[in-house]
């Protein structure tokens, strides 16, 4: 039962964490760790499980944030409760995942990355320019005065209150990820990641499975977006720059693609380290970059030996190669 004890200890530690850090600023950092871990777990479904390199993940985060802002702010004079607005946000984010995923289904690898990167930029530009001709997104000024969550008589306002809220959603995301990883759907995703042709022949409807991966990934981003909006009490297009996609992807890769514990550690390190290095002022990003490079050299598959990065299996040929090999005259085969 040592695993069970470890987990309990870890859980108690996360519960006590806000009381162990020196000040409120660090409680904010812990809250961000929870937020980014949730986001990274969502991207991990797409990149880690299904092997679809998505460079525009921030689009779903942005869509989630803005949908939540629309539903719970003076902007459209809608003031839905957090507990109604968030599920709606997640549902809409999931649909957006399917809509943005559908055009990319036939693409693989680098081409998929380029197109998803484009989607990230399109959503950002829509948010910035969405104030004309009809004001929907309020452009660069963002949306202000977003309602905080309420639970019974408690209105969330302080960082440690948000920390526990975010932690609860992080644990939910972790539970869903774990269950999916060991399910028929999760196995199908991994099969697609390993060999798409074989997956199709094994009876997997790859179109459906990929769209499900996009939908689950986007719904985690929807959770993250809704949480961000309710915590920050405002959203701006600049919260959703390309840089964020890369940052979240780095969290997934750092720990080891497809490895859930790795994703949690990766996100924790990548949120915490820049804060730790903050004392070094200008050199902070330099140290951060250096650390990433060192890691890529010595642990190319991530801290936790993930599943996928840097791997090229010599024996899995593409179908094109296989059919092309038909054209070349083979060696004579005797009886």
């Amino acid at each position: 039962m040592s695993l069970w004890m470890q987990r309990t200890a870890l859980f108690l530690l996360t519960l006590a964490a806000p009381h162990l850090v020196p000040n409120d600023y660090w409680i904010g950092v812990l809250t961000r760790i929870c937020l980014y871990t949730t986001l990274a777990l969502g991207l991990n479904v797409v990149v880690g499980f299904a092997g679809l390199l998505d460079l525009g993940y921030v689009a779903f985060y942005g869509i989630g944030s803005y949908i939540y802002a629309f539903l719970a702010s003076p902007h459209f004079a809608l003031h839905l409760s957090f507990w109604v607005a968030l599920p709606l946000t997640v549902a809409i984010a999931a649909v957006s995942g399917i809509l943005l995923g559908a055009p990319t289904l036939r693409l693989r690898g680098d081409y998929l990355a380029i197109v998803t990167l484009g989607f990230g930029e399109i959503v950002y530009l829509l948010l910035i320019n969405g104030d004309r001709p009809v004001n929907i997104t309020n452009g660069v000024n963002g949306i202000l005065g977003i309602d905080p969550p309420r639970l019974g008589s408690l209105t969330f306002s302080r960082n440690h209150e948000y920390y526990y809220l975010f932690l609860a959603f992080l644990l939910l995301a972790l539970l869903i990820s774990t269950r999916l990883a060991h399910s028929r759907i999760g196995w199908a995703w991994q099969a697609i990641r390993e060999d798409e042709v074989a997956a199709r022949v094994m009876g997997i409807n790859t179109t459906k499975a990929k769209l499900q991966a996009f939908a689950v990934g986007a719904s985690f981003a929807g959770i993250g977006g809704g949480l961000l909006a309710s915590w920050q009490r405002s959203v701006f297009p600049d919260n959703f720059l390309f840089y964020e996609s890369i940052n979240i992807l780095a969290m997934v890769i750092l720990g080891g693609v497809g490895n859930l514990a790795g994703v949690v550690v990766g996100a924790t390190l990548l949120v915490a380290l820049p804060e730790i290095f903050r004392g070094f002022h200008r050199y902070r990003m330099l140290a951060y970059g250096l650390m990433l490079i060192v890691l890529m050299i010595f642990r190319p598959r991530g801290l936790f030996e993930g599943n996928r990065v840097g791997r090229r299996e010599p024996e899995t040929s593409t179908l094109e190669e296989e059919t092309l090999s038909l054209v070349e005259p083979g060696p004579p085969v005797g009886q």
Binding site: E194, D195, G203, I204, N307, T316
Partner: peptide, 19 residues
């Protein structure tokens, strides 16, 4: 040319077959 799901376990490969 073998097309197993290399990073998955032996058992999981068969489980995928039952999809």
């Amino acid at each position: 040319r073998q097309r197993l799901f290399n990073q998955m376990t032996v058992l999981q490969n068969v489980l995928v077959g039952a999809h």
